[in-house]
Amino acid sequence: MSRYARVIGTGGYLPEKVLTNAQISLMVDTSDSWIHERTGIKSRRIAADHESASSMAEIAARQAIDAAQIAPEDIDLIIVATGTPDRVYPSTGCLLQKRLGIKNGVAFDVQAACSGSIFGISIADQYIKSGAAQTVLVVGAEICSRIVDWTDRSTCVLFGDGAGAVLLQACEEAGVLSTHIHSDGEFDDLLYCPNPQAATEAGKDEAGYIAMRGNEVFKVAVNTLGRIVDETLEANAMDKASIDWLVPHQANIRIIAATAKKLKMSMEQVVVTLETQGNTSSASVLLAFNEAVRDGRIQRGQVVLLEAFGAGFTWGSALIRY
């Protein structure tokens, strides 16, 4: 009997504090119109001092658990995608496991930058198909506001904080139709965040802030996401019209629009949270997926394409029949 992974619950959490473009324009030389026209962002959420990746992950995870109507102890694998972990170790996955009161199973982190949640879904899918896990929790949780330089207008306007979660469980009918993940370390200097405590290059004295060459990243992202769309459709012998919803990584409205155009989809079929959330890195796809499930846009039986691109470079997709 074949085993497949099926989505049984979703969850999300956004911090209470809202930071608008107008407020950022008081901090750096920019404006609301400049930011919105180039990125599609109007505001983003900022975590409170007492919040962490694991505390936000717990709220999102408990929402998903409630939606799935299971007990936390039913989960036998936790995968947390984050680039802003509470600690270097133990993993944020282990900290989340403790918060949820789960004594058994396995927990670990995935670091694939903005593609992290897609990588997490892909790993979960393999665990379930192989029989190594029955119920898997995948969470993307980020506090990007703590790794951006608030004097750098090219990056501080882009990012926000939040957590998204999805629960996957083994079933006899295909839910996750396919996943596709890739990386190419050749472009490591176009988008990165240094670790000042582990600097190895002679004379290197960098703060631990995101550094990005935006124009170059944009060009690679558009071309790469176009290819992943083709790869995903070909692997499933599907045409573009078979996809009901596109849930993209929320980095830039122009990248999102280019991917939709590639699929010949109207923007009404694209889940966009960018305007009020900014780029929440590994949390963004799961936050958007959760929002569209909970407001009723995404219905059971519909085919959803999740895709993301991030530092590494990393990129990937998950085609899901919800």
Rank of each mutant, 00 (worst) to 15 (best):
M1C: 11
R3E: 10
A5M: 07
Y13D: 10
L19P: 05
T20M: 11
S25L: 09
M27E: 15
D29C: 11
D29Y: 05
S31K: 05
S33H: 12
H36I: 08
G40M: 07
I46M: 10
H50E: 14
H50C: 10
H50Q: 13
S52R: 03
M56K: 09
A57H: 05
I59L: 14
D66Y: 04
Q69A: 13
I70K: 02
P72A: 09
D76L: 00
D76R: 00
L77D: 01
I78C: 04
V80K: 01
P85M: 11
V88M: 15
S91Y: 06
Q97R: 07
K98D: 15
I102V: 13
K103N: 06
V106G: 02
F108I: 03
F108C: 03
D109K: 00
S115N: 12
F119A: 11
G120Q: 04
I121E: 09
I121L: 15
D125N: 08
Q126L: 06
Q126F: 01
Y127C: 03
Y127E: 02
A132N: 07
A132C: 05
E142C: 08
I147M: 12
V148E: 09
C156K: 13
D161E: 04
V166Y: 01
V166H: 01
E172L: 12
E173T: 15
G175F: 09
S178Q: 13
T179S: 12
H182R: 03
P194M: 09
Q197L: 15
D205N: 14
Y209S: 09
T224F: 01
L225G: 00
L225D: 06
T232G: 13
A235T: 09
M238V: 06
D239G: 14
A241S: 15
I243W: 05
Q250S: 08
A251V: 08
N252Q: 03
R254L: 12
A258Q: 10
T280M: 15
L286H: 08
F289S: 03
F289Q: 00
N290R: 09
E291Y: 02
R294I: 09
G296Q: 12
V303C: 13
L305D: 11
G312L: 08
T314R: 02
A318T: 09
